[in-house]
Amino acid sequence: MKNRLQETLIDLIRIDSVSKNSNKKIIEYLSTILSNAQFELELLKYIDPAGIEKYNLIAHKGTSPGGLAFLCHSDTVPLATKEQLNPTITDGKIYGRGACDMKGPMAAAIWAGVDSESNLPLTYIITADEEIGCEGAEYVVKNSKLLKKYSPQYSIATEPTELKPIYAHKGLGSITVTANGTAAHSSTEKGVNANFKIAPFLYFISTLREKYNSNKSYQNSEFTPPTNGLNMVISDFNCALNITAARSRCSVSFRSMPNARTEDILEEITDAANRLGLTITSKLYDSLYTDPHNNFVKYVEDITKSKAGTVPYLTDAFHFKANNPIILGPGSINQAHTENEYIDIKELNRGYSIYKQIIKNPI
């Protein structure tokens, strides 16, 4: 028999909230639940670069500042098949896009708060576009009046962690380097091949990878793996073999970590591109590090009976560092984004119980 939490998750899966689309319908659905539970609501709309309307929902209950916030995102990665919008229940698992990341954990957190009789000030921050750059969270931090007014003391990002608390995650440095040449028939020797111009940069990046993987000052042993995963992808835009490439691009990424020389890495790569006369753009999504010895982390460790750890992936929790975030949710990252994405119903229900227990006692 399906309970209210399962029914909510099934409804959420049926709503297509892939990042490229508007998330208006799922935000309207969640707004109804929270409004009926007497939460004060704030809706923040913005237009994404493709001209699509996106919505962030901030909901608060309680008259005093502080308390706890749940950090959730409403979007999902693209569908593997259209059937992922038709949730199924098999062998005690709910299947569908977003079941694990993160519609299941989000539903558990919302119902835990709605059902709670605690006087703890409680806030929900439900964002757009986490899967494609965390723009929704950034917009909330800059523009939310409720967030500024109530300023939650602690927060939980409801990503799937198998209900093990996480105090730190890696960030992401993204760098794009472009070489420009002149297209011509290769037999004429009149062209300028952009691939030759960018080749020294590619070699330099390969030497950096060797350095970063052997020099511990660029690593952080609190993470698995402790290295920054320097990676690159190259393209000359499918230039034909008998044409000198007019443009060549190298996209470089690395997983930034606290105390692992992030600024030095950006400077090394930028300086190399500038020396070679290449065009460069970059963006850094910050890592997250919440003191694993603070009272809230210890409180959640006691409730979950799990020691707090770290994860190598990125979440939008880093935008909420002022609210001392940790990451905690039912489900496994191993199921997230997969063709057969699912969440185990027993773990979903346990997530609800743990969230409710966390809310129960003021911190």
Rank of each mutant, 00 (worst) to 15 (best):
A109M: 09
L202A: 09
S151Y: 09
I126T: 05
I125G: 01
L172D: 10
Q153G: 09
E138L: 07
R209L: 04
T88A: 00
N215H: 13
P121R: 01
V114A: 11
A199M: 11
L163S: 00
Y212H: 06
P152Q: 09
T123M: 15
Y95I: 01
V114Q: 06
A108W: 06
V177Y: 05
G96P: 04
K170G: 11
S214M: 10
K211Y: 12
S174N: 10
L146V: 10
I89G: 13
G173I: 00
S206W: 02
A194L: 10
E159C: 03
K211G: 08
H169R: 07
C100P: 01
K103E: 07
I110L: 05
I166L: 06
A108I: 02
A179S: 10
K148F: 07
S214K: 15
F204Y: 14
N195S: 11
L172H: 03
T161R: 07
Y95C: 05
K197I: 14
T176C: 13
S118V: 07
Q153A: 14
A137G: 15
N195Q: 06
E210H: 09
E189W: 08
K93M: 11
E162R: 05
A157Q: 09
G191W: 08
A179V: 08
K164P: 04
I132R: 09
E135V: 01
T123Y: 05
N215D: 15
L147T: 10
Y203V: 15
Y154R: 01
V114I: 12
G92C: 04
G133K: 06
P160F: 05
L146E: 04
V114K: 12
M102A: 03
T188F: 04
S144H: 03
G92Q: 10
R209G: 11
W111Y: 13
D129H: 05
Y154M: 00
N195P: 00
N213H: 08
Y203C: 14
W111T: 01
Y154E: 03
P160Q: 03
A157I: 03
S206L: 01
I94R: 01
T161W: 09
V141S: 13
T90G: 04
F201W: 03
R209Y: 14
A128H: 08
K93L: 04
E117R: 00
L146W: 01
Y154H: 10
K216R: 11
A108T: 02
Y95E: 02
Q153H: 07
G173L: 13
N143E: 14
M106K: 10
D101F: 00
E135K: 15
R97D: 00
K93C: 12
Y139T: 01
F204E: 14
T161N: 12
T176W: 08
E210T: 12
N180H: 14
L163Y: 02
E159I: 04
G171H: 00
D115H: 09
N180Q: 12
A199Q: 03
V140N: 12
